[in-house]
Amino acid sequence: MPCVTVRVQAETFDATHETALLLRGQDEVGGIGAFTGIVRGGDGLVALELEHYPGMTESMMRQIADSACARFGLTGCTVIHRVGRLEVGMPIVLVLCAAAHRKAALAGTEFMMDWLKTGAPFWKREEFANGRSEWVQPRAQDDAATARWGVLDQ
């Protein structure tokens, strides 16, 4: 059974520590694909406020992670998504995919990120320096990126 870790949390994460946990007792791992999402600044953005649907968020993240493990033959994966107020430059999401070979590890990471953006109930609100605040609009290119993977395996 692949080793799957899914967490939603307000506090930051330690990618090195999470990588060590993912590798523990997994001699067949040949590589880990890793992505850390960062709150990107620009246009006066100060912070993002991340809201989610407790319960459904975790179950969708688990479904996405299980699907990635099955599709790419991962030995394990870790996905941690932060919620609450996150200032520009702070880490927001971590995806780690462990596999015997590089291509599976990297493809699994892409798959998980595409699905997280469009299939897990998170919403971002942007907070600007002038006090303005706006909900982020969904982007068509994110839907297209997810669509290329077809349906989520059950």
């Binding site: 999401v93 997280l116 953006k117 897990a120 109930p121 998170f122 919403w123 609009q137």
Partner: peptide, 10 residues
């Protein structure tokens, strides 16, 4: 039953 806008996580 939950109503919400299209999701924007990641």
């Amino acid at each position: 039953i939950a109503f919400f806008p299209p999701v924007t996580g990641g």
